[in-house]
């Protein structure tokens, strides 16, 4: 069972991402966080196998969350995907620089999303 954390302020987008993940070939368990703060609460509670985050959110933004995760010894190994709307090229570059493993543009094709996710989940854990 792969445990995925979805960080996204839009409830609809959260369920869309969740339902896409549920269609994967591997069984996934999903935890949803509606803000960066909620994500910070979720992180220490469970060992996640993957994090999917938006950038534009209230309280702390996605980049700040990525920066935190990727500079934290406990979480830095978790693969992280940024899902954000087009038109924020500078933010995209920054996200990758901060250590995000992939960046997807909304609206995304489910196939593309799934193949990126499967690739990240397939990496052996020690290499993460």
């Amino acid at each position: 069972m792969q445990h995925v954390l979805i960080v996204e302020d839009s409830a609809t987008m959260r369920s869309l991402i969740a339902s896409t993940l549920e269609d994967l070939d591997v069984p996934v368990k999903i935890t949803e966080a509606a803000s960066g703060f909620e994500a910070l609460h979720c992180l220490p509670r469970d060992p996640f196998d993957l994090i999917v985050t938006d950038i534009n959110m209230p309280d702390i933004n996605g980049l700040e969350l990525v920066s935190f995760i990727k500079s934290n010894a406990t979480y830095r190994g978790i693969p992280l995907v940024i899902v954000s709307t087009e038109g924020a090229e500078r933010d995209r570059a920054k996200g990758m620089e901060l250590g995000a493993d992939a960046y997807l543009v909304k609206p995304f094709e489910p196939e593309e999303f799934c193949s990126v996710i499967m690739e990240l989940l397939a990496q052996p854990k020690q290499e993460r």
Partner: peptide, 12 residues
Amino acid sequence: RSAHSLKGLSGM
């Protein structure tokens, strides 16, 4: 942020 979410959602 609201406009941004509207864009992303309606696109989906």
